[in-house]
């Protein structure tokens, strides 16, 4: 395997306002020009991971890691100046809420060009128009002089992506880039992101709560639960033959067009569980005594890494008990 573009080892994050860790020692790698997705529900630490890698949590959380290597350099030791340069030129960032991410009272172009020196701006402006057209904004030359509030949510998010691409990044960090948008707009934006990725040779870290979104563009997927990685592997393998009960839960709980109607969707209840065992023991339908006493380690099974004591039985057990565990409350 070639050297990874980004390699994270034992990342731990604890918010200053909280006692528990939001991210509990996770490791993963992103190869150049590939897309890695982090999937999980809110509170699983997926967005925190993305923000920690971009070093955007400086004032609000303690971040620890053995290393965060980006292009062979450890970003943990980078100075403020180096970080700014990194964010401007090597890493692009797109956030979830298009409205909250913009300053509504400044023009689109002005905001996106702020990060660059005055002398560079005219040239960058041309480039920005080019990128805006590329991400599907018609009349980009006019939109660049409009205020964000004049644009729809989808347009704001497109402009944000154009801005993130402006410095010719090699890595794009996208934190739930489509969750706040309509299904139809989501589909278009996802398609766009994967096109751009191929064209620009861009690597991507995509954070989402929706496996359906992820399945469309990510090569590899990391599934997080409660600050830990529970499963990791190639996306299609992960979806088609999940070995962790939580991944199964995520896939089955999605309302899909080919499900029987008016039948309860797949969910499972929350119980109390001991803090020593598996993080998912509090919701897992397959829990056995060892799950509460011993934490399962991530281990390579076939193509995927799984942290589950019963990984070999998951497929069989969950299919057999399909009907009986579908009750909610």
């Amino acid at each position: 395997m070639s050297t990874p573009l980004l390699s994270v080892k034992n990342l731990e994050v604890r918010y200053l306002s909280a006692t528990a860790k939001a991210v509990k020692g996770i490791s993963f790698e992103i190869q150049p020009a590939t897309c890695l997705a982090i999937v999980g529900e809110s509170g699983s630490g997926k967005s925190t991971t993305a923000l920690a890698i971009a070093r955007l949590l400086e004032n609000s959380a303690n971040t620890k890691a053995s290393e965060i290597l980006f292009e062979g350099k450890n970003i943990l030791n980078a100075s403020k100046k180096e970080l700014r340069k990194l964010r401007r030129e090597r890493i692009g960032i797109v956030f979830q809420d298009p409205i909250a991410s913009w300053n509504l009272s400044r023009k689109v172009g002005t905001q996106l060009l702020d990060a660059f020196d005055k002398s560079e701006r005219p040239e960058r402006r041309e480039k920005l128009i080019h990128f805006m057209e590329k991400v599907g904004i018609d009349k980009a030359a006019q939109v660049i002089d409009m205020y964000p509030y004049m644009l729809s949510g989808g347009m704001m998010q497109r402009a944000m992506i154009a801005g993130a691409l402006l410095g010719n990044p090699v890595l794009l960090i996208a934190d739930e880039p489509t969750s706040a948008l309509d299904v139809t707009v989501q589909a278009d934006l996802l398609h766009l992101l994967s096109e751009l990725r191929k064209e620009q040779g861009l690597a991507m870290l995509l954070v989402s709560h929706n496996l359906a979104v992820v399945s469309q563009i990510a090569e590899r997927t990391v599934v997080m639960y409660s600050g830990e990685i529970v499963e990791e592997g190639p996306t299609s393998t992960l979806i088609n033959s999940s070995k962790h009960p939580y991944t199964v839960n995520l896939i089955r709980s999605m309302p899909a067009m080919d499900q029987p109607r008016k039948v309860n969707l797949y969910t499972n209840e929350v119980r109390n569980a001991s803090s020593e065992g598996c993080v998912y023991a509090n919701r897992c339908p397959l829990v056995i005594p060892i799950c509460n006493s011993q934490k399962p380690e991530l281990q390579l099974i076939g193509e995927t890494n799984v942290a589950c004591h019963r990984h070999s039985e998951v497929k069989k057990l969950l299919e057999v008990s399909n009907g009986s565990i579908t009750s909610d409350s």
């Binding site: 923000l51 955007l56 949590l57 004032n59 609000s60 960032i93 956030f95 909250a100 991410s101 913009w102 300053n103 905001q111 996106l112 702020d114 990060a115 944000m160 801005g163």
Partner: peptide, 9 residues
């Protein structure tokens, strides 16, 4: 440039 702070603060 963009209000990253909102998320963090």
């Amino acid at each position: 440039m963009i209000r990253l702070r909102a998320k963090i603060s």
